[in-house]
Computed example of a mutant assay.
Amino acid sequence: MTLHDLQPACASVHGGPDTAGVPLWDFSTNSNACGPCSEAREAVQGAEATRYPDPAYTALRESLGAFHGVAPGRVVLAASASEFMHRITTLAALQGAVQAALPLHSYGDYAQAAQVRGLDVVRGTGVAAGLQWACEPSSPLGLADPAVRAWQLDGVARDGGLPDVLRVLDCAYAPLRLDPEGAWTGAPPAQLPSACWQLWTPNKALGLTGVRAAYAIAPAGSEEQVRTLVALAPSWPVGAHGVALLQAWVQPAVQQWLVYSLSTLREWKSRQQALCLDLGWAVHAGSLANYFCAQPASTALQNDLVALRAAGIKLRDATSFGLPGTVRLGVLAPAAQDALRLAWKAVASGRTIADQDSPADSGDAL
């Protein structure tokens, strides 16, 4: 593999601010629109940034371990979820993995991390692979990941002489589930499979995505893998502000705020989906989280997204997820939704006028 071969894999697509700055109304990320959580923000603002954190993160790992009901030694700190995705993919490659199994539609860093380490990327469940990814609920569709049920049934297994399968469950959106059966209650849900790595990124749930900090819970009996992952990390992967965020994450007041915010997000989501339907968009059914996908009524979606961005509104083009012609929308407050309605109608009206004035339609010579 050459450097040239890696270029397409490194062309990541993200939501949030871009070269045009911060969108006035940003539907392109899945951050909790009720945030930021004031208690967590105050903790971050009050972080002691004049000195290094404890390099072993002793107190932090104890707090996170207690929150999840596991020994502190099973907690691995990470600079971000994306950083951990790359680090555990490196571990899989070191263990002899030759494949990475991904959900059909999924976050780009899973594939990027695999490709730059020479692993073949396969999509779908039930595939023999050295590294398997799942996301619960999934992104971008917000559905239950079918792999999770399979993992619950058979745990970590050996497959056809391959090295031990590394299974990683991305729990980024577990705290933002809005369905009554699986809604967050202030503690990690017991129904998540334990015989896999669980990757947690609280910054989305707390509305503080600019603070890059994450952690993973190792499955029982993974002491050697934990030691290797710690050895693969740089010194102090999480800075003082990230430590403050993660310490705040486990506080009862912060969890109470999060649980309370979910009822508001449910109301906003229902209103936003109705708005999309009113605009003539096809809304993908079944989303369990604070985001969903829709197919706008447009034959020139890329141009329309550019026009919306110029009007201060950003949607997440889902082409990079394998869903061309589709956008993912994080749930925002009614004021943002109303702005989207007005902007889309203006864009659609402009498109109609342009079509009527085009030479092909008027019969003028080209």
Rank of each mutant, 00 (worst) to 15 (best):
A47C: 11
R123W: 11
G21S: 11
W197C: 04
A134E: 01
L308A: 00
A213S: 06
A43N: 10
V230W: 04
D338W: 13
A285L: 15
Y260R: 14
A43P: 10
L258V: 05
P17Y: 05
L3Y: 14
R149F: 02
G322A: 06
C135K: 07
T90D: 13
A93V: 09
G65S: 08
L64N: 05
V13W: 11
Y52R: 07
V211E: 04
A244M: 08
D164P: 11
A128I: 10
L262S: 04
L342C: 08
S28K: 09
E181H: 09
R51P: 00
E224Y: 00
A174E: 12
L178D: 03
A333I: 07
P234K: 06
P72E: 04
F27G: 06
G118D: 05
A40D: 11
R341L: 05
P334M: 01
P202F: 09
A310S: 09
A157M: 09
S194E: 05
R61Q: 03
L232G: 11
L206K: 06
A147D: 01
N32K: 13
L332E: 11
N32T: 14
L288E: 11
V165T: 15
L332G: 02
L169G: 02
Q273R: 15
Q255N: 15
T50M: 12
A20N: 13
Y57L: 03
